[in-house]
Design a protein around this nucleic acid. Sequence first.
DNA 1: GGCAGAATTCAACGTTTGTAGAGTTCAACG
DNA 2: CGTTGAACTCTACAAACGTTGAATTCTGCC
Lengths: 213, 213
Amino acid sequence: MTARPAGRSGRRAGDSKTSEAILEAARGQFAEHGYNGATIRAIAARAQVDPALVHHFYGTKEALFAAAMRLPVVPSEVLSAALASKPGDRGLGELIVRTALTLWETDGVRETFLGLLRSAVTSEDAAIMLREFVAESILGTLVRIVDVRGTGAEVEYRAGMVATQMVGLGLTRLVLGLPAVAQASVDELAATIGPSVERYLTGEIKLPDRFAG
Amino acid sequence: MTARPAGRSGRRAGDSKTSEAILEAARGQFAEHGYNGATIRAIAARAQVDPALVHHFYGTKEALFAAAMRLPVVPSEVLSAALASKPGDRGLGELIVRTALTLWETDGVRETFLGLLRSAVTSEDAAIMLREFVAESILGTLVRIVDVRGTGAEVEYRAGMVATQMVGLGLTRLVLGLPAVAQASVDELAATIGPSVERYLTGEIKLPDRFAG
DNA sequence: GGCAGAATTCAACGTTTGTAGAGTTCAACG
DNA sequence: CGTTGAACTCTACAAACGTTGAATTCTGCC
């Protein structure tokens, strides 16, 4: 019965795509500040919405994070499509590097990747998310599509080496902003780093004894 | 004039190495949670000390971070020492990878590196710190000691490529804990990744036009 | 032996955080 | 046209944060 200041509350007119806007704002904030750094209030402000509405739609901050980090593209499909244009193994590494770099320049994907990366280093839960995402969605798809050399543990090891190079490339270019890397073009980086990735996948590398056989 | 509960306050007996303990606790917390995630209260608790004492010694949280992140070793000296045993360029990359991995297993260095890395992704200030640290202390020393191929911008580009691989290795192994990388031995990783690093430094890489000359 | 100053703790402040509940307005359907 | 439920805002709370000032106890010097 207490009088409210003015008719600003209540449902808005028109078809509401507000929950979408909240998700996008959340992606942006998570990408810029990581899980802990992004506040619900800042996300709400970015979406021009009351903080309580965020809670109304997504319940908890954790749930919002999970919803926002759902990729707008399916990794396996992108990888398949990119690799389909190269039947052989020639230039395979270069193609992989180029695909990743191009994806990272895509709206939505870039924010999601950055959000996961930034959150993974400070939140153990997010680290598990990213690790499983990299291990299964990316590396898993990769070894399924590409003819990685060897079998079993060796394949996993080779894929892991690819991960070290690619994650490092992303971090150095997008987060750290090391000039030499951040200012280089996709072509340059693909040409330089591609061969390393290719060597990890199919090259002659001195394998430890436990991969004997 | 208000009576205090009991004589628990005041200066402790014996020579106090408390400020040292606080620094070590801070390193641990920054390494585990990053700049924002590490709280002064948690650091104080870890050092078994009142939160106000932390502030008494170091003033602000930012100053404490700066003090805690001062490396217990001098990068240029370690690099020089490690590379001194290899006069030629043969096995250079492997040596670099091995040196980094070994350093990361050293107490104090490991915490500092992790603290910087974890903080750099969420705090812009820490990102600048890490970027400058990598650019000057690490890459700068590297190109001063090692005979990197080329001149000027090309050297910087090559050093940047090394950074992508090494930062990625550290992140994947220490933070992400990707099994294939985290469980591998120093020898295995050095043997596998070394050649990539060496190629970035001295190998034939297709350089973009802007390095012509 | 007294006194200055450093070491240490206590209690409290002003903010900011995630979350909760109750209230208000609109759209859709009968 | 009336009802229902979803969209939306306001106010508030309890917890945790960095920081501060005053009080207390010890050490070291004269």
